[in-house]
Each structure stands twice: as C-alpha cells, then as structure tokens.
C-alpha cells in the first residue's frame, strides 16, 4: 500500500505532474524575463505565467460554430497528456526516471510528436483561414525537423547500445568523456528542439504578423489555458530530454544531482533564449531547406561516426 502511495506521489507530485507544471511555469517566467531584459525591457513579474493561466481558466470558452467541437475541445488535453506521460520516463531526481523499461526511448519520441500533431488537428478543425494556414505550417515544419531531431537524439544510443533513457544516462554518466563525441548532434538537436518548440527564429507556424497566432487563433478561455500549459510543459520536457542525453554529468548523490539538473535546464534555456533573441523569423520554406541541407547531413555523419566508434570503443 505504502509502495503504491509512493508511486502515486512520484507520479503526481514530485517529480511528476505537479513538479512539471510548477517548474515549467518558472521556466516560462525566466524565458520571458530574460528575453525582455535582453531586449532592454523590464519584463513580467515572477507570477505572471501563473496569473495568465488562472486568468484564462476564468475566461469564457468560445467554440466556433464551424469547428468540430469534439476535436476542438479534446486536443488541448491530448497535448498536455502526451507531455505529462513522456515526462515520467525522463530522469529528473538522480539517474533514474520514475518509470523506465528497455524501449522507453521510442515511446518518448512518439509522445514528443503528439503536441504538434494536436495543434495541427486543433487548427485544422477550427475551420478558420488563419488557423488552417497555421496548421499547414505546423505540419510542414514537422517534416523539416523530425528527421534531424530523431537522428540526432538516436545517435548517442548507438554508442551506449541501449534504448532506455535511464540506461543511456547511466552509461554516459559512467563514461563522461564519450559525451564530447556527440557534440555535433547536441548542436543539431538544440536547433531542432527550437524548431519543434516553434520559437523564434522558427516561429512561422504562429507568426503573429502574418497569420495572427496560427493554429490556435480560435482558442480561448480554458482550452487555450491548457494549450499554453502543454506548451510550457513541452519546453521543460524537451529541455530535460536534452540534458538527459547530452549533459548526463552526475555525482551519484541524489539531491546534488537534482540541483545539477536544475542548473543544466537553466543553461539550456539560456541557449534557447539566445537563439530566440538574436534572429529574425525564418520563412517556412527556408526552414525546410535549412533542416534538410545542413542539419540532416550533420546528423547522418554522426550516425556513421558512432557506428564506427562502437566497434572501437
């Protein structure tokens, strides 16, 4: 019984859902604050993301007459659920995730693809002009980043020889020097993650000056709040995944590792913000070109290198 409660506690409170949402709010605040400070602005107070969320929860939800009401109202939850479920396979507290099995890597990658698909369906079934274009752009962007992203995430597993994130982290924690072999894919992964999160310069699916806010233009109230929450959680999810694969430095002491985890996530967030702050929005066709011309070849090269090294190491 106590064992069961412990698991429930892990799942829902720490390091599960509650931690995920609270920390993602914090990251969202830091994201906005640092972004603002780098632009010479004041930026929001620390509670702003939470205030936004609560405000949206209290607002009236409008479902357009033309929209498919079921899909329209289910998609935010699908998005949020996918991220939450994916998060439990990531090591947060120490080396071990809440759950892990030998093929969880594949599951996580699948779950990673769900939020954009949910946004696509939401936009498509809103039946509005802006959201249709936004939805099409989300799908186009997925075609651009999926392959480089997957290959760069999978390349490190070739050396480790495992498909479990917990084991992968453990392997690299034991052989910290091997991490530097994966440096090229770490960079491509960072760029692909930025692309996946639809942050500038890859924010053309929600380019406000062109298509207002893209796929989610018809959303309001509670449904929008959950979409935003899902998006925040996705940010933390992606950052945690990155730190688990490419920055698996561990001490073995569980709470020190946790602090290390926080430091790592903040560092990755800083890199993502720097990318966001220094560049103009890239057009969707240029995003495609960039991902396939530059990112994909680099990741493929890494795969070949890692296959060769696997025989040596």
């Amino acid at each position: 019984m106590i064992e069961f409660l412990k698991i429930l506690c892990k799942l829902f409170i720490f390091p599960g859902f509650l931690f995920l949402s609270v920390y993602s709010f914090l990251l969202d605040f830091l994201d906005r604050k640092l972004y603002a400070r780098m632009q010479n602005r004041v930026g929001p107070p620390w509670y702003q993301p939470l205030a936004d969320f609560l405000k949206l929860i209290g607002k009236k939800t409008i479902i357009p007459a033309d929209a498919n009401a079921v899909i329209f109202s289910v998609m935010p939850l699908v998005s949020l659920a996918a991220v939450t479920v994916g998060f439990i396979y990531l090591p947060v507290l120490g080396k071990e995730a809440i759950f892990s099995f030998s093929g969880d890597f594949v599951i996580v990658l699948y779950l990673l693809a769900i939020p954009p698909l949910a946004a696509f369906l939401a936009g498509w079934y809103s039946r509005a002009v802006y959201s249709t274009i936004g939805a099409t752009r989300i799908l186009t962007q997925m075609f651009a980043y999926e392959v480089p992203l997957f290959i760069s995430v999978l390349a490190p597993t070739l050396i480790a020889g495992t498909w479990s994130i917990t084991e992968l982290t453990g392997f690299y924690a034991a052989h910290p020097l091997y991490i530097f072999i994966n440096l090229p894919v770490a960079i491509t992964a960072l760029i692909s993650f930025q692309c996946k999160l639809e942050r500038a310069p890859f924010d053309s699916p929600e380019a406000e000056t062109e298509i207002v806010s893209g796929a989610l233009v018809e959303y309001s109230g509670r449904l929008l709040a959950f979409f935003k929450l899902a998006h925040n959680c996705e940010l933390l999810f992606v950052i945690s995944l990155f730190s688990a694969i490419y920055l698996p430095f561990m001490t073995g002491i569980i709470w020190v590792d946790f602090i290390l985890y926080i430091v790592k996530t903040l560092f990755i967030l800083l890199l993502l913000i720097l990318m966001r702050v220094t560049m103009a929005r890239i057009e969707i066709n240029n995003t495609l070109n960039f991902c396939w011309k530059y990112l994909a070849p680099v990741t493929l090269g890494q795969v070949i290198l890692n296959l060769l090294l696997r025989g040596v190491l």
């Binding site: 310069p201 380019a207 000056t209 103009a280 929005r281």
Partner: peptide
C-alpha cells in the same frame, strides 16, 4: 519592419 519579420529584439532597440 523588424517586428514584421519577427525580429523583436531589433524592434525594441530601435524604439528605445
């Protein structure tokens, strides 16, 4: 113009 092309940093600096 910078805002239109999604380059908000430059937008903020020029307006400052």
């Amino acid at each position: 113009a910078c805002h239109e092309i999604g380059f908000d940093t430059m937008f903020m600096y020029t307006w400052r």
